[in-house]
Design a binder for these strands. Sequence first.
DNA 1: ACATCTGTTATATTTGTAGTATAACAGACA
DNA 2: TGTCTGTTATACTACAAATATAACAGATGT
Lengths: 132, 132
Amino acid sequence: MIIRLDMQSDLPIYSQLMNQIIEGIASGELQPGEDLPSVRSLASDIGVNLHTINKAYTLLKQEGFIQIHRQKGVVINPDGMPGITPEYEQKQSEQLRPMIAEAICRSMSKERLLHIVSSIYEDISHAEKGNA
Amino acid sequence: MIIRLDMQSDLPIYSQLMNQIIEGIASGELQPGEDLPSVRSLASDIGVNLHTINKAYTLLKQEGFIQIHRQKGVVINPDGMPGITPEYEQKQSEQLRPMIAEAICRSMSKERLLHIVSSIYEDISHAEKGNA
DNA sequence: ACATCTGTTATATTTGTAGTATAACAGACA
DNA sequence: TGTCTGTTATACTACAAATATAACAGATGT
């Protein structure tokens, strides 16, 4: 899997990493049970410190996306992804609300907004893996 | 307008302020041309430093939501809100994408996601102002 | 003229997070 | 016995967030 980092972004590196791994899972590019690189190898691959990788992995583990086995390594959670918990629903609403408010301010119609969300949803779902 | 701040949030105070003002505009509670409190009075009202307020106001001005007049004060932009610029569309997509990816990971159907977005859109649009 | 309001600018300080740099520890495994 | 894994600890730099003061400049009202 190709990792792209934007060092100029206001998003921390570990957040960018988390986002890309989550999108990799969502697109099917990363399958449950699949291995992820070790903190050291990924760190040297993309040129950051191993603690930065470790932070991303630790947070992904806390949210249930991956499993970390002390001497084996890191895998996409083979027991499946976390579900739609009440805490997740609340977090999601809190994140969506300011974005939707700004869209309304800018006179974006509900239909147009829904179409954008729908397009991104399809774009991620239907992402092909280059090795078809 | 009632401002609610969560000092424990990971969101900076000035961001929370921006979000609430934008939602106030989106709901119609704040009308174009309407005055906003001065940096000093709002700061003392909600118990934060005036620079924190000033930062929120300055950013809102940069994005076109408000106007700042040097000796008069701050008003909701009477010339109307900023439109849907290409830069805005790109920023919006970049913000939506990780959230939608996580929703897909958690097996949230597109229909359910769209329904949530739609509900929040309606909730903000139809917010009544208590002084009906 | 004077006081008072407005936003603005400048400094300095404190606190917390992000990221890096090293080093060591502990368990698995060939 | 090495070598791999994640883990923990410490220290350091850099930066953002927030506060605390203070002063400046223009407009307004008395």
